[in-house]
Design a protein around this nucleic acid. Structure first.
Length: 854
RNA sequence: GGGCGAGUGGCGAAACAGGGAGACGCAAGGGCCUUAGAAGCCCUCGCUGCGAAAGCGGCGUGCCGGUUCGAAUCCGGCCUCGCCCACCA
């Protein structure tokens, strides 16, 4: 059997990442190189945050593609002189742990802890400059205690409340879901994909709608445009008017009830020919005429069943029934019939609309279906729209009102204003704003989450619902559940846990058994990173003042209207509570793209297309895997995994290793090895090399600003290729060679921290200098004189087509260039049958000779 | 149905503000070195016409049109794919 020699064979050492990577990681830890001094003011501060993972068990390549490039950004900032805080933790509450517990008879805590241990090990393989001294785990009582404390503060401020409401229920996970967690037209659970059902349940909400307007303001935030668009659409602000229609008296009833509607088009009020209430509208019972009752009841039952089974596509035929009563148009006095229909939603606006079929597609379809009148009240000047097929909803900005009493002839926007004003005088309306955004439903009927700290007194009705006093926090989860129940909430079925005493009267009480949505945990974790052990409050305000808001946050775009919006809500709420100084959590957000499986599908265990970084690291080393992830695509782009290209970056590192450790060696098999480029002296070649190094440095420094990893690596490859070509030549003994190697290592250090550290150490040793880590060096500064060129090569076009190139000194004047260009043989060939019409010059870029026939 | 984004060689991609399309890498082919090589080094590599070759042309960034001296880039219309929303009054 053969074995690796224990000492290196003669000749240059080989690149062996398996040896150098663990060695340097241990050394960095020993030196506490990545532990930020949060109390130091010596350097400018930079809080760098990446989304903490859910400890599902395995770290896959997708996690690497978030953490590694973020680490590069942090390491670059450190070299630029910043005090960088880059912490990590785990989003440890959640359903997968409970599912494992149900299946495997293991407590969720045990399952979670085990997974965290494995994932922490895997994350450490990346060699990221993470500050592990501030690690936090949200399932730890030292964390969720403060969830509970914040919940109590929210209650005091009216930001948390309990209410009966129709809510979305996942029949598979047996929990309610926030509106944001129900996806798509099929209305499926965000986690398990099961179609949700509606249920009327008493649930806890956070009042996110309080900040709806402020959430629409992104001033000063560098967020990806799609995130802003998605959040804006989700919040869905609509401006318009709220208008009160009065129920008309008739032979069945005295009338007089107010039906409030919301409309974005008060200008169309004269076109309202009927009214539609949501089937669940509270006035339906009272207003329905006896002869309509059977039909109405049947429709309401059917509507309820439908909404529970299946939301049909938007183009299904409209349905509805008249209830018999009429309403009075508050501006024209006209009486119009009242209908119910399920296209009007009880949960949006006021749950009732004025129907203007001439100017709303849905109302139009409804009117057609039930032969209701369609009256045009808005049209472009001197045009009568054809109302045969479709409603007229366009805005050309020169529409005027028609058939609208005193308001006829007014431009539509002015009409809207005046009609609203008239209604307001009469006390029958006012301008109003409505949002699509609903309050965040935060209670979950699960046993692996932060218990909601409330007790229901069973002794004295006057106590009612009692918040758990601060000094009784945390409300701990039970640790003694042997078999996790497959059905129902473990806190509910636990024999003793929910039974307690009322904090108010001391009598028997029952604990709230709902726990908090895990998105509550993730809405404030970065503040806790600053002081994860703090015992007298959730957030250290002095550190918050010093370090927040987070300078750069990185993570996936799939959280656009979930985590990324909830966290913004928290910043505003915590600011109102005086706990933090800022109202936005992060100054800059970046969404990295996804790495898909080799089949182009999302990576998942069930598809069997998950890429395991451990095997790649074992084969190529962490530096190669890091580089490859950054080289294979722009950071923001999605791309399927294809490991083929990894050879390329690995080759690049091996070449760099060779030129750095053995500059004088020559390649066998290359007749040109060791020779200077044709026509160049050693001094020429050295000068060219150094200039290339400085141009590379300039490019890379610039590319860092927008995370252009792939082009940075390309530039370093080019520079290294230049070194390879000069290896073994005279240039390799000149100062320019050593300076180029030095700059290359420094530029590479953030991206491939281990190999650059190793080569740095070897270089320092060879020079007999005192060692200090490459990662504590300053980012080099390029020399403008070396970046500047004294000769430029100009492309020459004739009529926009490339025909020639010319090399001229930088200082050549436009007139001189024109003269030179027109004298070129290739240009003159085109001037045989044509003459010069003009010569376009873009200084430093190109020359275009435009001709015309003679 | 609406909104947003994207479409460039066999493949991943680059082209910063309208100025040399395809940098860098993968794959492929040829060569060198080698006992040998899966290592390393060198060369070729968008399609196509003429040519023995050096070379000289034509076409080419999803499609059709436009603006411009000049378009992957800007404008209009269309096609395909992806994501988000989906009766929101």
């Amino acid at each position: 059997m053969t074995s690796e020699p224990t000492t290196e064979p003669a000749g240059p050492p080989r690149y062996n990442p398996a040896e150098i990577e663990p060695r340097w990681q241990a050394r960095w830890e020993e030196l506490r190189l990545h532990t930020a001094d949060l109390y130091s003011d010596a350097k400018p501060k930079f809080y760098l945050l990446t989304m903490y993972p859910y400890p599902s068990g395995d770290l896959h390549i997708g996690h690497w593609s978030i953490i590694a490039p973020t680490d590069v950004a942090g390491r670059f900032k450190r070299m630029q002189g910043y005090n960088v805080f880059f912490p990590f933790g785990f989003d440890a509450f959640g359903l997968p742990a409970e599912n494992a517990a149900i299946k495997g008879g293991i407590h969720p805590r045990e399952w979670t802890d085990r997974n965290i241990d494995n994932m922490r090990r895997q994350v450490k393989l990346i060699g990221a400059a993470l500050d592990w001294s501030k690690e936090l785990i949200t399932a730890d009582p030292t964390y969720y205690r403060w969830n509970q404390w914040l919940f109590l503060r929210f209650m005091e401020k009216g930001l948390a409340y309990r209410q009966m409401a129709p809510v979305d229920w996942c029949p598979k996970d047996l929990v309610v879901l926030a509106r944001e967690q129900v996806l798509g037209a099929d209305r499926v659970c965000w986690r398990c994909g099961t179609q949700v059902v509606k249920r009327d349940l008493e649930q806890w909400f956070f009042r996110t709608t309080k900040y709806a307007d402020e959430l629409l303001n992104y001033d000063g935030l560098r967020y990806p445009e799609p995130i802003k668009v998605m959040q804006t659409n989700w919040i869905g602000r609509s401006e318009g008017a709220e208008i009160a229609f009065e129920v008309a008296p008739d032979d069945q009833q005295p009338g007089g009830e107010q039906i409030r509607v919301f409309t974005t088009r008060p200008d169309t009020l004269f076109g309202a020919t009927f009214m539609v209430l949501a089937p669940e509208h509270p006035l339906v019972d009272a207003l329905t005429h006896p002869e309509n009752k059977a039909q109405v009841d049947a429709y309401r039952t059917e509507a309820r069943r439908k909404s529970e089974i299946d939301r049909l596509s938007t183009d299904r035929e409209k349905t509805g029934v008249a209830i018999g009563a009429h309403a009075i148009n508050p501006i024209s006095g006209e009486q119009i019939p009242i209908w119910i229909a399920d296209y009007v939603l009880s949960t949006y606006g006021t749950g009732a609309i004025m129907a203007v079929p001439a100017h709303d597609e849905r109302d139009f379809a409804f009117a057609q279906r039930f032969s209701l009148p369609i009256r045009v009240v808005v049209a472009p000047r001197d045009v009568v729209p054809d109302m045969m097929d479709t409603a007229y909803v366009a805005h050309t900005h020169d529409e005027v009102l028609l058939n609208s009493g005193d308001f006829t002839g007014l431009p539509a926007p002015e009409g809207a204003r005046q009609i609203t004003a008239r209604l307001e005088e009469a006390g029958k309306g006012k301008s109003a704003v409505t949002y699509r955004l609903r309050d965040w439903l935060v209670s979950r009927q699960r046993g692996w989450g932060a218990p909601i700290p409330v007790v229901y007194c069973e002794a004295d009705p006057s106590c009612g619902m009692v918040p758990v006093p601060d000094d009784q926090l945390p409300v701990l989860l039970p640790d003694d559940i042997v078999q996790w129940p497959a059905q129902g909430n473990p806190l509910e079925t636990h024999p003793t846990w929910k039974h307690t005493t009322c904090p108010s009267c001391g009598g028997p009480g029952r604990r709230e058994t709902d726990t908090m949505d895990t998105f509550v945990d993730s809405s404030w974790y970065w503040w806790r990173y600053l002081s994860p052990g703090k015992e007298d409050g959730p957030i250290d305000r002095a550190l918050n003042d010093a370090w927040c808001p987070v300078e750069q946050y990185t993570g996936g775009a799939e959280h656009a209207v979930l985590h990324l919006m909830y966290a913004r809500f928290f910043a505003k709420a915590l600011n109102d509570l005086g706990l933090v100084h800022e109202r936005e959590p992060w100054k800059r957000l970046f969404n990295q793209g996804q790495i898909l499986g080799e089949d182009g599908e999302r990576m998942s265990k069930s598809r069997g297309n998950v890429q395991d970084p451990d095997a790649l690291v074992a084969r190529y080393g962490a530096d190669t895997v890091r580089l490859f992830l950054m080289f294979m695509k722009p950071w923001a782009a999605d791309a399927p995994w294809n490991a083929k290209g990894i050879e390329g970056v690995n080759r690049f590192l091996r070449r760099l290793w060779t030129v750095a450790t053995d500059p004088l060696g020559r390649e066998h098999g290359d007749a040109e090895a060791g020779r200077l480029p044709a026509g160049q002296t050693a001094a020429d070649a050295a000068d060219d090399l150094l200039r290339t190094a400085h141009r590379t440095l300039k490019k890379i420094t610039t590319d860092h600003a927008d995370f252009g990893w792939n082009t940075m690596i390309s530039a370093l490859m080019e520079l290294t290729n230049k070194l390879v070509r000069l290896r073994g030549s005279e240039v390799a003994s000149l100062p320019a060679w050593d300076e180029t190697v030095r700059l290359t290592l420094l530029m590479l250090a953030p991206m491939a921290p281990h190999i650059s550290e190793e080569l740095w150490a070897r270089r320092v040793e060879a020079l007999g200098e005192e060692w200090s880590s490459i990662h504590t060096q300053s980012w080099p500064v390029f020399d403008p004189a070396l970046v500047a060129t004294d000769e430029i090569e100009l492309p020459i076009q004739v009529n926009g087509k490339l025909r020639d190139t010319i090399s001229v000194p930088t200082a050549t004047s436009a007139a001189e260039i024109e003269q030179l260009v027109l004298a070129r043989d290739k240009v003159r060939a085109y001037l045989q049958d044509a003459e010069v019409a003009r010569v376009v010059q873009v200084p430093g870029r190109l020359v275009n000779v435009v001709t015309k026939p003679k």
